[in-house]
Write a protein that binds this DNA or RNA. Structure first.
Lengths: 139, 139
DNA sequence: CTGCAAATTGTCAACCATTATCATCCACAC
DNA sequence: GTGTGGATGATAATGGTTGACAATTTGCAG
């Protein structure tokens, strides 16, 4: 798995250790194909000796390594999603039922990068969340 | 002040009461021209008998009334900004120094609305946060 | 203007996600 | 295999936010 190589490289580059527990967490993250929070990840690791604290401690590493992204839903908890192998995308959320649609739009992304550079920034990443009412809830 | 009228209408429409305290909070919100959190708002009301709990209780009303928006920085606390009289805008944030730039881009907004409708959603709002490295930090 | 019911507020305790602490454990270099 | 410093687990602590409830105030009817 490519993502393992990436994470291991990331760890080694900064003198962090490749541990069994970090591996378990990594696998759990990539076995999850939805948006999840730390607690849900912890639950999915029940039975495999991993403590809650370590899950919380590992998430920033995964984010920093570029494998995982915080996906901002403006809710209470931190939500994450793995992004390795997923092109940059954004979300459209129904404010009635909470349904989330993922979208990719190259043109929009290009426009965003242009705007960033026009302001003298070196582009790094973007988060876009659109709120609306989905077709099912419109009636 | 127009925003007072809007808030009062909002309250009356749902049988909520216009109270002195809500008025004080409203004024404090519109006296603040930056992004703020509940605690900062509470501080700015020191001396005017308003309790912390009421500040927290009132924020959702202000958001729901459309006068205030949660501005998502993916940080620890809920951040807000008042939006009455401000065109819809987004933020570019420097990941090194934390500087925040506000931008308006009509074309981008149009594109976002189009994408939303193409997906069968009725457009409501969007949140865009761009991360990058600002000109000062690039060196 | 007065009285009343219901909404609102303040105080303070409770909640809950996240973080710090610290003793124990383990990865990794030698 | 050993030593050492990073990593982990258990648990307490933290801090933003919310709940409970008695006291207070608003909006309205009379």
């Amino acid at each position: 798995m490519e993502y393992r190589k990436i994470f291991n490289n990331y760890l080694q580059e900064r003198g962090l250790r490749l541990t069994k527990v970090r591996d378990l967490i990594l696998e759990a993250v990539f076995a999850t194909h939805t948006h999840f929070d730390a607690e849900e990840l912890y639950d999915s690791l029940k039975g495999q000796a991993v403590s809650r604290a370590t899950v919380y401690r590992t998430m920033p590493l995964l984010v920093d390594s570029g494998l995982v992204k915080k996906s901002m839903f403006g809710l209470d908890k931190e939500k994450y999603e793995h992004i390795y192998g997923h092109p940059n995308h954004f979300h459209i959320i129904c404010i009635k039922c909470g349904r989330v649609i993922e979208q990719i739009d190259k043109k929009l992304e290009t426009a965003i990068i242009e705007i960033t550079e026009r302001n003298g920034f070196e582009y790094e990443d973007y988060h876009l969340k659109i709120s609306g009412i989905c077709s099912l809830c419109k009636e």
